[in-house]
Design a binder for these strands. Structure first.
Lengths: 341, 341
DNA sequence: TTTAATTCCGGCAACGTTACCGGCAACCAT
DNA sequence: ATGGTTGCCGGTAACGTTGCCGGAATTAAA
């Protein structure tokens, strides 16, 4: 039990060749039932476990998927769990690397995973990334790549995401229906697709309800509670301050909430607030915060399924694009009118 | 750029032997400076990356640490980040597996990591685990093991943890100093060492201040918000209800808070509340919740350092035991008296 | 009885790497 | 010149596994 048993040990003990043992252990064809039984019995007894390294080296497959994410916040860790579940089921191991939203780390992680000889990648791009050469290098090696959540047009690969535009739309329309008219939006970095799509939804809702867009009410800031806090303070200091805020993440919604409280304003009476992601904390704070829920776990599962499909099908699936629907959860922070019967 | 370059490719192109290339690439001794330069140049050009699989197979080391955790909540993910940071620095990759507090999964994960030929383990045991044979199997293979956070006397291995007794003590003493007298404790499962130590601290504080222990005020329940919610409701329904609650985790504190609010009681006036872990959410809810902070990130770093030390030193470090100090963070939920000058 | 088919098995090479050993020069000191 | 040292290099085996090929033994078919 000291050193793990190998095929060689079994062969020696049974006085048969390595090849026979190897075949007995998997194919089972081309091998006498009796010897097969003997091999099985002994391998059981010695607690034989095939050496993964040797196997991978031989057949040039590690059965490992490299997953690159910008961070592991609530939503992304749910997605990763979804990926994990499906991947495990299919016999894959996943290696998760966080880029911490940093472009440099993203490149480094890609390199590392490539060195580890993963069989392919499932990627959510960092908000900082403007170049995508490191990902293209993966594709040059003919390794399958799937992009999820944070997709980008600069990378042609199968993708899964939620309908962010729809999410932005329902959040904004809900605020309008509640009677809010000067609706501000706290968006993320300017080059982040996810953020822009949600903003598009916001703009569409305004247009549909004939509310004029006010550039002063559109604020880009970092994806971060503190930045959102200060941005909100500035918004509230305007002469004609907004009467509602839609933030494209719950982290930012929390920052906004703190700023609103700091100013002594009440939600939903003085000001409405809707976030995005439906993190558990939104239901715990006072007042509870309305938020757009997304099927994160499911999205992860779909990403992994898509990956496996891509891996097996030689055909080009680069233009496969799955889109899941978000859902608005209404809570106290935006519920100004009594609930209709 | 299709297939990764190997040592063989370099050797062929330079008309020298594999061995020479191999030596040139690392030892640098026993090889002519000129050939070395040539090898380096070509390896750069071909973008040569040593094949980790072959390397590991050869030298029977994967430079990988298996990390087993019961879950990835706020505290544990911080610890894992600490582990990761130190491990990476030392040239190790970490593979993290969650057991979801399940004994079966823990065994499965151990097996999986063992199959992946990790060089050793850093473990925080699941709350469900009562047997530790699967961990002992690791030690039989002479692989280094370090236990962190959730330690257990049933496993002799170097360990890192915080002083849970101290944590329970300061939390309870703080409540006593604020004037609370009937202090209940919401503890975790009965066999969980961490929980019991915190309870011991609670008991010590009572004893020091000559408050009689009341078994009715000691409640064991699952490590979980919902259970804590219902347990608190029951506590509050007592004829002589407690005037303060100490929960051994913040998750449980949140559950308790919801129950207290549900009953229409005020914090800190009617009832005091102190949690454990200092999760960010404790400062966001209303009222904000006092909590015992632990140096999680640091603890993870220490665990990894201890692992590396254990790996290198042949000497028996099994009785090395590091203990870090927790710190009480006082917030609204327990601040009944005005702050002293 | 010969031929053909079937069943079962062992040998060899290969995946990419390094450890070890031995050998050929060239140099130095005797 | 002899012997010993040093610098540099190549060959071989090994890590644990599997794929391919060929061959022996047995059975079936002609």
């Amino acid at each position: 039990m000291e050193k793990p048993a190998t095929i060689k040990d079994i062969a020696k003990r049974l006085n048969i060749s390595l090849s026979t043992v190897s075949r007995a252990l998997r194919n089972a064809s081309d091998v006498n039932p009796d010897t097969k039984k003997a091999v099985m019995a002994l391998s059981e007894e010695l607690n034989y476990q095939p050496n993964k390294l040797a196997l991978s080296l031989r057949q040039k497959q590690t059965h490992t998927i490299g997953v690159i994410v910008p961070n592991l916040d609530y939503v992304l860790s749910l997605m990763v769990r979804g990926i994990d579940e499906v991947a495990l089921e299919a016999g894959f191991t996943v290696m998760v690397c966080q880029s911490n939203e940093s472009f440099g780390r993203e490149i480094l992680n890609t390199r590392r995973l490539l060195e580890s000889l993963v069989d392919g990648f499932i990627i959510s791009v960092s908000s900082e990334s403007k170049s995508f050469d490191h990902f293209k290098k993966i594709q040059e090696r003919n390794l399958p790549v799937v992009v999820f959540d944070r997709v980008t047009p600069h990378l042609t690969a199968p993708s899964v995401r939620i309908d962010n535009e729809e999410g932005g739309f329902v959040a904004t329309e809900h605020l309008i229906e509640q009677g809010y008219r000067r609706i501000a939006v706290l968006a993320g970095p300017e080059n982040l697709g996810v953020s822009n799509s949600r903003m598009d939804g916001y703009l569409n809702a305004l247009k549909k309800h004939k509310i004029k867009k006010d550039p002063a009410l559109i604020v880009h800031c970092d994806f971060n509670q503190d930045y959102a806090y200060f941005a909100t303070l500035e918004l509230l200091a305007m002469k004609k301050r907004p009467d509602a805020i839609f933030t494209i993440s719950d982290r930012m919604a929390i920052g906004a909430m703190l700023a609103i409280k700091k100013k002594g304003l009440r939600m939903p009476e003085d000001i409405g607030l809707v976030g995005f992601n439906n993190e558990p904390v939104t239901s715990l704070v006072t007042p509870s915060i309305s938020s757009v829920d997304m099927p994160s776990f499911e999205l992860g599962k779909v990403a992994a399924k898509l990956f496996i499909e891509t891996m097996h099908n030689k055909e080009n699936m680069d233009h496969e694009e799955k889109v899941l629907k978000p859902k608005l959860i209404i809570r106290e922070s935006s519920q100004k009118l009594p609930i209709k019967k």
